[in-house]
């Protein structure tokens, strides 16, 4: 199986060329591509890869608002390791209770209610991890993040990831290509987007991307131009341009 996104795509492309050259038949090509497309992507072991980067990149003693903080692992880490003033917002009652039990300040609310009333620049960083694509009004939230926070940190699964593209091309069914593989009617990801979509938005709205990272076949690296094809997930540090 491919070790990098590039390996996988290269293998598929060379198989297509072999088919064109007549070295393999159509059935073999289809079987090969299907095999590659269906092999699950590699995910990093342990906690969220984004947490590691955020923990490294943000300075000690700052303030962080985490939108959709889940069970509070990131915020606990930031509190204990970096002396960060934290606040989480989360909708799921079980997750909220888990936060409270680990001592992470958390407010149970639906992010689709928006951040009205939160003062401008109230936090140094506002984090939106793996949540943007689940919101009813994602653009409103992106705008609100950059109003309430001096910096925004956004991560999402890249819908243009090559495996997702292949799965759609070959199976003709919406396989969102996310961790967990929800069916179309069960996925929380109601606004899937690609890295290109996000960068287009940033450009259009004069939002500056100060740092960007990609997860590709289980490896985290600085985002490269071709990662709209190779990255499973991406993470952006943004601020008002």
């Amino acid at each position: 199986m491919p070790k990098t996104g590039r390996d996988g795509v290269d293998k598929v492309v060379s198989a297509i060329i072999k088919r064109i050259d007549g070295d393999i038949d159509g059935a073999s090509l289809a079987q090969f591509v299907r095999l590659i497309a269906q092999s699950p992507p590699v995910w990093p072991v342990g906690g969220r890869w984004q947490d590691t980067i955020i923990g490294t990149e943000i300075p000690s003693g700052c303030s962080v608002l985490d939108l959709g903080c889940g069970t509070g692992e990131l915020l606990e880490k930031l509190m204990t390791e970096k002396d960060v003033r934290v606040q989480g917002l989360e909708i799921d009652p079980e997750a909220v209770i888990a936060c409270a039990v680990r001592g992470v300040p958390v407010l149970q609310m639906d992010l689709d209610e928006g951040l009205e009333g939160f003062p401008d620049g109230g936090f140094d960083y506002v984090v939106l991890e793996e949540t943007l694509q689940t919101l009813r009004r994602p653009l409103t939230m992106l705008g609100e993040m950059l109003r309430v926070g001096r910096h925004g940190i956004v991560s999402f699964p890249n819908v243009a990831y090559w495996r997702t593209r292949l799965a759609l091309a070959l199976q003709g069914s919406i396989a969102v290509g996310e961790r967990g593989g929800h069916a179309w009617h069960a996925t929380p990801n109601i606004h899937p987007l690609s890295i290109r979509d996000f960068l287009d938005w940033a450009h259009e709205h004069r939002v500056r991307v100060t740092k960007a990272f990609a997860l590709s076949e289980g490896t985290v690296r600085p985002l490269a131009p071709e990662d709209n094809l190779y990255a499973q997930e991406a993470l952006f540090f943004i601020s008002r341009g």
């Binding site: 003033r85 606040q87 409270a100 300040p105 958390v106």
Partner: peptide
């Protein structure tokens, strides 16, 4: 929410 809006740490559970 009022406390949260002031940036004061708050735990609110429903």
């Amino acid at each position: 929410l009022a406390l949260c809006r002031l940036g004061k740490p708050i735990t609110y559970v429903e």
